[in-house]
Nucleic acid binder design. Sequence first.
DNA 1: TTGTAGGCGTTATCAC
DNA 2: GTGATAACGCCTACAA
Lengths: 339, 339
Amino acid sequence: MSTMKEVAMKAGVSKATVSRLLSGKGYVSEATKVAVYQAIEEAGYRPNLLARNLATNKSQCIGLVATNTLYNGSYFNELLSQAAKKLEDNGRQLILVDGKHSAEEEQQAIQFLLDLRCDAVIVYPRFLTVDAMDSIISQHKQPIMVVNRKLRSHQSHGIFCDHKGSSFQATRHLLTQGHRDIAFITGSLDSPTAIERLSGYKAALEAQGLPIREQLIIKGKWTPASGAAAVESLLAANTPFSAILASNDDMAIGAMKVLHAAKLSVPEDVSLIGFDNIPTAPFLQPALSSVKDPVSGMVNEVINRLISMLDGGYLSQNNAFSSELILRDSVAPGPYFGQ
Amino acid sequence: MSTMKEVAMKAGVSKATVSRLLSGKGYVSEATKVAVYQAIEEAGYRPNLLARNLATNKSQCIGLVATNTLYNGSYFNELLSQAAKKLEDNGRQLILVDGKHSAEEEQQAIQFLLDLRCDAVIVYPRFLTVDAMDSIISQHKQPIMVVNRKLRSHQSHGIFCDHKGSSFQATRHLLTQGHRDIAFITGSLDSPTAIERLSGYKAALEAQGLPIREQLIIKGKWTPASGAAAVESLLAANTPFSAILASNDDMAIGAMKVLHAAKLSVPEDVSLIGFDNIPTAPFLQPALSSVKDPVSGMVNEVINRLISMLDGGYLSQNNAFSSELILRDSVAPGPYFGQ
DNA sequence: TTGTAGGCGTTATCAC
DNA sequence: GTGATAACGCCTACAA
């Protein structure tokens, strides 16, 4: 690889002149401009970004940390494509690093991006607690933004969505329609989102003065297969139910498969609601309802805030986003209550 | 941020000693080890990777270029998660950069990663032609691997799948079952994969001595919505068909929705086959068949080859991968032939 | 308008 | 075992 020095020699000028021309800072005469550009062409010169970043102490790169178990979900797709587009519009690059499967590895991923001297880091945490995040943020100069979490001490660095509230509303929607035997399929319970959605369900039942029946709460793992297994166990246990709230659309899809196999239709026999509103979900069955998470809104806000932190400018402070209920059915419970 | 110099001063040694200790190369006495580690702790020192990479001319980073329009598909998910996992097992990081929406931007993305001094680049091209890729590869010292393309001059840098062959087989499967009116929904025709799948369909018909009927070939855009639109136009045109081959699963899902809405069941009334075998597809309907692309196999091979190029070792040369036909129905055409 | 020189934070090659 | 010292390739006062 040819260096700036070589270009300078070829053009008969100094490195400084070449640098000035390339960075657009400082004056360069038309004549030397031509000569330098030609030398660059001849040499096939390309700037070494490592050297440049080292010298300027900037990288024009934003890091993103997410666990690779998320890479399968369309929630992450949305996050990634939104972030990539917004950042590139802003002339920056996104660097994605795997947070793997523990709090320690998640922290290492953040550290790696910081060591790479990324201008900022966006974290979609899976294992690190809110307190850990808060502490990491205060230890570093670079901005670290946290998606899907309500931070305690660095509120402006976090952005979140009221999962409990949307789950509450979805449950209440079913209750309003007359459903009383509502099964709930949880996500992985080591995830705060899963816990919040479960608590929203419970809260809605309680608000209605209904008991929480543990046999109607089945543990899932976010995957279609675990959603299918959940409904199978429900059927096997012979527990009556007229509606299912699945903690994400993937599990709702798995649930629907088993319902169909059992000759139960949605929503005539069983009402089914998922969360996240993944792109293929509406195509599965017009009757599948879903709670749409405001991923794109959150990502937009995170990046806007980041840009204003880095480049200066207005800093908005909208931390809390709301889900949108997309309900495609409004069917009262049918005669079916268990096998 | 504290530097190595500061650590050295604190510990009362030279930078060289600290560097030796950290890199594990060269001898350091136990006593100084302790002193240095303590100084590192006190200073909260973190190595500057930019400086290190500049000095060593290595980055331990592998770049990946893909268009952001792909970020939505689960094909890309598979690619990304596979690549991230394999590379991290190998102690390297994956840097993802958007190839945007033109050949020029795709090339710029590659160039950016090269300028960042990534050890190698993996490209999942969407706009750059095979010849352009070949030429880019020969212009650079760093290995550049190309997924899903058969290169002309740098065969060992490309890895591909016989899309035409698998489309041929899927079509022949339908023909063998007695289908004669097979509709085909294409992908975006500016993508080589879309073209290959279409040509496999045509070839299978020709091999059987059947005419290619343009009214049965509908242009899609890879999305569920375009799959739905395709079937709607088919129904509106009143063209008889007993089977549909959709160029990917997303479009098959969209197609299925419209079929259901028209009171046509799969596969009793219409046989439906998709491509890629996305995770949710098998959950949609037990009857949806799909041709599974060997993404994970290809990614594995690409990365294995990359690692052996970079670290030395055995270099396998398996360029061509085959799809796997996953057929869930074997239903002969029913009485339905158009509206 | 241009060149000189020092610095960014490492690694690596020597002597000692 | 350890410490100067010169790279690595670029930026940026400051001087000319």
